[in-house]
Amino acid sequence: MHDDGLVFSYLIDGDGKGSRFDWAEVATWNPGDGLLWVHLNRDSEDSRHWLREQSGLDPLVVDALLAEDTRPRCAQMGGGVMLFLRGVNLNPGANPEDMVSIRVWLEESRIITVRIRRLLSVHDLRTAIEQGHGPTSTGDFVVQLAQRLVSRMAGVIGDIDDEVDALQDRVLVEESRQLRAQLNDLRREIIALRRYVAPQRDALAQLTVMRTSWFEDRDLLRLREEADRVTRYVEDLDAARERAAVTQEELGNKLSEQLNSRMYVLSVVAAVFLPLGFLTGLFGINVGGIPLADNPRGFVDILIVLLLITGLQVLLFRWRRWF
């Protein structure tokens, strides 16, 4: 096989360091050699072949690792744990809410991860191993991966809170329909993030209650902390979604008031000119007997009558408090 499907692989020692492995070394590895981490590209035929024919995994596990779309979840199968997580998409030109999946199969002496797109948290973990301060065990690997995934969520969710605050302030001073489109986009972004963040909280929480020999109590405690952080982020997203909805409702009310005010002014203008238009239309008919037709002051007298009618209408509207 070629190395295009193997993104990288490391044999991890107990001190946080690792030795780089290729396909040949992965094929000859055995549990007595130490903890092996194999990171694969899902779209590669080499990766698919190795998972199905040489990994020794249950076909159900392989199908799950190679599935087209996944949601964060955790399940214990035989002597291993299947863990699917998501990280915010911080790749250039990507939308953060388009979260990137990482599929993980955990055993005491072997870790298999499968990706579709590049995930910066996995790259950070690889860098930590090369620098000598990476994970020392399977439990520590899960903790460090979860910490990096959750930490990157903080910046994106913080930006969403700031954007909601900015839009709330703008609604107070602006009455722009463009704000409505921005609020709609923001709400869609929040919903897209929450779609994966909430199940990730449940997956991490479920992992903490699994009893496996290779998860130490310290690892479970750190995982509970990360699950609590994700819970706070879910609550922050819920609060931001509610604030955005309230802001959008307030903007809608202001735009409705603005429209009603303009319609009211147009209605008043139409009411003022309705009798004037009737009179001018009546005096403009081409038949005999029109009053003041032969009077030199007829035009002035008609203007005076029209002004008197307008003044009486204005007084009537003010008395009725119509404006």
Score class of each variant (00 low, 15 high):
residue 132 G to A: 07
residue 317 F to E: 03
residue 167 L to S: 05
residue 124 D to P: 00
residue 169 D to S: 11
residue 223 L to A: 04
residue 42 R to Q: 15
residue 74 C to Y: 05
residue 261 S to L: 05
residue 140 D to P: 01
residue 170 R to E: 15
residue 217 D to P: 02
residue 19 S to Y: 04
residue 144 Q to A: 04
residue 260 N to P: 00
residue 229 R to S: 00
residue 1 M to E: 10
residue 175 E to G: 14
residue 102 I to T: 13
residue 277 G to F: 02
residue 52 R to M: 08
residue 25 E to F: 01
residue 9 S to P: 03
residue 212 T to S: 10
residue 11 L to D: 03
residue 196 Y to M: 05
residue 38 V to M: 08
residue 43 D to F: 14
residue 268 V to I: 15
residue 300 V to S: 13
residue 233 Y to W: 12
residue 311 G to H: 09
residue 63 D to Y: 05
residue 15 D to W: 04
residue 215 F to P: 02
residue 181 A to Y: 09
residue 254 K to T: 01
residue 273 F to L: 09
residue 271 A to N: 02
residue 236 D to Y: 09
residue 177 R to L: 09
residue 233 Y to M: 14
residue 38 V to K: 07
residue 257 E to Y: 08
residue 256 S to Q: 13
residue 243 R to W: 07
residue 282 L to K: 10
residue 48 R to E: 11
residue 182 Q to C: 05
residue 245 A to H: 07
residue 75 A to T: 14
residue 98 D to C: 07
residue 237 L to H: 08
residue 32 G to N: 13
residue 243 R to H: 12
residue 59 P to W: 09
residue 144 Q to T: 03
residue 252 G to P: 01
residue 186 L to Q: 05
residue 201 R to T: 02
residue 67 A to H: 14
residue 123 H to L: 14
residue 238 D to A: 11
residue 109 S to P: 01
residue 250 E to D: 15
residue 28 T to N: 09
residue 271 A to F: 02
